[in-house]
């Protein structure tokens, strides 16, 4: 018993560690009735209800009882966790970009975006303003945000993928109003000068605006703005700008994991069923805009359907948009470069 024993013990520990990790991944290779849905923060309640709907549907179709586990977090870090080995069968994330990142790691097959309708986005959202009750600063549209004395809260696009849409929505507003590149950049520079706190994520920004009482207006995803209205009734109002961007939270089967777990069919059905009428209405209930036009119209009281929503395609697709605006040293960094 000495160093030899120590070395032996060390080996045993390491091996058992590795074995432990190994057996963990092997365990799931079972009957294909377990599904892990790796999603992002604000979908928690939606998927909790949807899982029940789906389970019933699946059993009706003759499937066996399925256990669906949900995981929530920031969209980007969730994607990274899948790349690094989180055994997700499906991912339902905020941005197509995050799913593309998983695709690039080889875990999702190319062409996932065409698998399902509407760029594999069963529900959409857009960027709106949340203001304090009474809207004292009289904020109506994007150009009100650059006025002196208006304090804006929005997350940092460099750390929060979702916040890129806030930036792009403002950009779209200027472009739609016929402004040239330079004018648009000036406009955004002014807007971000008014930003008081640049939180690292959407939840942090909401917290800053709602709980800590900072700023006059929060630029937020529509569904998140509605969540704040729910939790703090009579404190806030939603203002919809004339122009905004169509945000498409995307979903995809993580092919490699699903194959390993024998859940390919189940996972596919799980995502496809998101387009069923029930699920679409459920999405509307949870403040996402249903992709089904008919059902969207049922929610015309809730959602401003008059908004001019530009799509990411106007920016040449997500990857190009990211390159142009958010890469290190690109447009967004220029705003803060002195």
């Amino acid at each position: 018993m000495s160093k030899k024993a120590a070395a032996l013990l060390f080996c045993i520990l390491v091996v058992s560690c590795l074995a432990g990790c190994g057996s963990d991944s092997g365990k799931k290779k079972g009957d294909g009735t377990e599904l892990l849905n790796v999603s992002y923060d604000p979908t928690r309640e939606f998927y909790a209800e949807y899982n029940e709907i789906f389970n019933e549907y699946w059993k009706e179709k003759g499937g066996s009882d399925v256990t669906i586990t949900q995981s929530h977090g920031g969209s980007g870090s969730q994607a990274r966790s899948v790349i690094e080995g989180n055994e997700a069968d499906v991912v339902t994330l905020a941005l197509a970009h995050d799913i593309t990142a998983i695709e690039n790691s080889g875990m999702i097959e190319e062409g996932w975006m065409e698998e399902l309708e509407g760029n594999s986005a069963p529900y959409t959202s857009t960027i709106v303003f949340l203001v304090r009750k009474g809207n004292e600063k009289n904020i109506k549209d994007w150009d009100d945000l650059v006025r002196d004395g208006v304090e804006v809260i929005t997350p940092n696009p460099k750390t929060s993928g979702g916040a890129c849409w806030n930036f792009l929505a403002a950009w779209a507003y200027e472009q739609q109003n016929g402004k040239n590149q330079q004018e648009t950049e000036e406009f955004l520079k002014k807007l971000y000068k008014n930003v008081l706190v640049l939180d690292s994520g959407a939840r942090g920004a909401t917290n800053t605006f709602v709980e800590n009482g900072q700023g006059d207006v929060l630029i937020a995803w529509e569904n998140e703005a509605y969540l704040s209205l729910e939790t703090h009734p009579d404190e806030f109002e939603i203002v919809t700008p004339s122009v905004s961007i169509l945000a498409q939270p995307s979903v995809a089967v993580v092919d490699k994991n699903a194959r390993d777990h024998g859940t390919e069919e189940l996972a596919k059905a799980y995502l496809e069923h998101l387009y069923s009428d029930d699920a679409q209405r459920l999405a509307g209930k949870h403040h996402y805009r249903p992709s089904n036009e008919e059902i969207l119209k049922e929610f015309s009281d809730k959602f401003d359907l008059e908004m001019n929503l530009v799509t990411i395609d106007e920016f040449g697709g997500w990857d190009e948009a990211y390159e142009t605006y958010f890469q290190d040293g690109a447009v967004f960094d220029q705003i803060y470069a002195q």
């Binding site: 160093k3 120590a6 520990l13």
Partner: peptide, 15 residues
């Protein structure tokens, strides 16, 4: 138990 504790130490440090 020097061997044992040393082994644990190394394993902890390493892992």
């Amino acid at each position: 138990g020097f061997g044992l504790s040393m082994g644990v130490t190394l394993a902890m440090l390493g892992c």
